[in-house]
Design a protein around this nucleic acid. Structure first.
Lengths: 134, 134
DNA sequence: CTTGACCCTGTAGTGACAACAGGGTCCATA
DNA sequence: TATGGACCCTGTTGTCACTACAGGGTCAAG
């Protein structure tokens, strides 16, 4: 049912082949099936899992955080309180990041607007994310 | 005018002292003034700059991307086209990240909702970010 | 049956910090 | 005034998350 090689998987997820093997070594991806010639063989599930990992990493989550998020999906047999605590923490972080990115988007739009009008926009990019959360 | 030490700056930006010195070494932060005893002395501008750097890093931007964003704020004398191209690219990336995080937020909310009702939610966390952008 | 693209298992190098080591500064208190 | 603890200085080394070889095996095409 449409299995594919590590190179194929790498291409589809915009990931380096070495990175996929690295994720396998640290246990983030399960050991895949092997072909007769000892080549790794992946399926759709692995593709989904790796896509998720890569995009979560791109969003600034650490490997350990990605592991937790994957566990939320994998181990649904865990205690409800544990799931709740972890999901709640990640939700708070996600919402904070959305807020920061939204502010940054406004500033980038302003820069573009100023540029299109041929004027020098009063650039407040730094101020956007500047005030320390403390 | 309320200058402060590296330790103070570290506390206010939730950054390690060593990280601040590292940013100075690679030219992301300008060399600060020094006190009589050769201690680094920072002001509000540096505080803002460092806060921006830390939060941009947390949002998954690389050091080089942060450098570009800072340049958008610093070098407003650059050509309009260059600014436009760079700002446009970052805007696209920011919007993509917001979309991903928004999808993730929905899934985390669902996990919490299911948990509160004491049932096991049909967890689609992975599927949320799964389909390869290809 | 060879050649080039791909795969394998190592090990070593890089980017972005984090953690010492060995020493100097500062200042509140004895 | 001196001394102890908190903080600072400049190195150098360690860690995390990849990334890039090195040296060799697999495989479909010609």
């Amino acid at each position: 049912m449409a299995d594919f090689s590590i190179g194929e998987l790498a291409k589809r997820t915009l990931t380096k082949v070495e990175t996929i093997r690295y994720y396998e070594r640290i246990g983030l991806l399960p050991e895949p099936a092997r072909t007769e010639g000892n080549y790794r063989s992946y399926d759709r599930a692995q593709l989904g899992r790796l896509s998720f990992i890569r995009r979560a990493r791109d969003l600034g989550f650490s490997i350990d955080q990605v592991r937790e998020l994957l566990d939320l999906a994998d181990q649904r047999d865990r205690s409800c309180e544990a799931v709740d605590v972890i999901a709640r923490q990640h939700l708070a972080e996600v919402e904070r990041k959305i807020a920061d990115l939204t502010a940054l988007r406004v500033e980038l739009s302003d820069v573009l607007g100023g540029c299109q009008r041929g004027t020098v926009a009063d650039c407040r990019i730094i101020e956007t994310l500047a005030p320390a959360p403390a």
